[in-house]
Design a protein around this nucleic acid. Structure first.
Lengths: 202, 202
DNA sequence: ACCTGAACACCGTTCAAGT
DNA sequence: ACCTGAACACCGTTCAAGT
């Protein structure tokens, strides 16, 4: 996790127990961190088409995660952190979906699609490296990748040069050191095109 | 995290240090767990259309996560766990994409879209509850939700009844106790429709 | 080959006591 | 109101020693 209350206390020059005057629990502190970092991800509605509004939302969210990679696993993995996202953001997403023309029985599902899309790719992209020995681990994985048998996995072998360290699973660095810009763009455009289709179908 | 080497040792009736004979490190053990649980997520290629093949892949992955919710945050948040997914799965995904007709310069991006889609929604859906006092936390959040000011957030207030405990952020249980089936379906169909569009555009 | 047993340097959290 | 200081019940990991 790479985060400890005792570290926080240390860098504040204070006893660990002192933290508990300001915060009820460790989860509580983490929730506040997520709340603070994600406060302004949702753009103002009304100025952009719903498609561009979503593009802006997604890339702002990714940008926040890029700057605070430790937030990634909180957002993705902990309900507490997740629940600390602002009602203002939810309200804006919903109103954009309504304005886009989604029907009442689609709104909730599409809202969930938006949230999952917003955090899904980036939490993966900025997943944490092993704390232990990152360099050794990277070398080990790199070797494992290069020893993939072309006979057993022909398609993988063929695309390996293009994929190495630029695609999920087949990489030894995370988004901090090896960003996945073009795939992120593809991901966003795929989601938006899919939503346009859902809109047309209703 | 809810997982400790010492717990493992205890339930094996063995000293904690004994574990280190079989495994190099804690991360190592977790990687093996992920590897084992996710071994058979990828269906056989060739029998289904690429769309149905992906539908099957996505719902199998969700099913595994549903049965082993602790795997969720590993898959989503840790590069080590992520890297332990099988080359066989990667190979199958790639060959399905090739057979679907995606061009060479799209394949890698689309592969990343598939992986992100595969784990994105479900890791969020089955994000872990607070370890501390889940019931108390749920009650507290429920109250916070019901006290949302309708004047400040009109759209949210309007959809709140439909959203409560059935949508991300606005919920106090995770997928284990409150599954999000219809939204997952919408998510999958959105992704597939978006990919069809990417295919048509090329 | 596989495990014991003790030790080390960490955690989050509690609680009485200080100021 | 805010912090100290000690304590408690945990961690992951190492290492010599046993069998």
């Amino acid at each position: 996790m790479g985060f400890s209350l005792r570290d926080v206390a240390r860098s504040l020059g204070v006893y660990p127990s002192a933290v508990y005057w300001h915060v009820a629990t460790r989860d509580d502190l983490l929730a506040s961190v997520v709340e603070a970092t994600m406060a302004d991800v949702a753009p103002e509605p009304g100025k952009l088409s719903w498609q561009d509004w979503l593009r802006e939302l997604f890339s702002r969210c990714r940008e926040v995660i890029r700057r605070h990679p430790n937030v990634a696993q909180l957002l993705g993995g902990h309900l507490v952190a997740n629940a600390s996202l602002s009602p203002g953001m939810i309200d804006r997403i919903l109103s954009v979906l309504v304005a886009a023309g989604f029907k009442n029985d689609q709104i909730v599902d599409m809202y969930n699609v938006v949230i999952a899309t917003m955090v899904g790719f980036s939490t993966l992209e900025f997943a944490s490296m092993p704390t232990d020995d990152p360099a050794g681990w990277a070398a080990q994985l790199q070797e494992k990748v290069s020893s993939i048998r072309a006979l057993e996995f022909p398609t993988l072998a063929r695309y390996l040069p293009a994929m190495a360290n630029r695609s999920f699973i087949v990489r030894w660095q995370n988004g901090t050191d090896a960003a996945m810009d073009s795939s992120f763009r593809a991901y966003v455009e795929t989601a938006i095109a899919g939503m346009e289709r859902a809109l047309a179908r209703a």
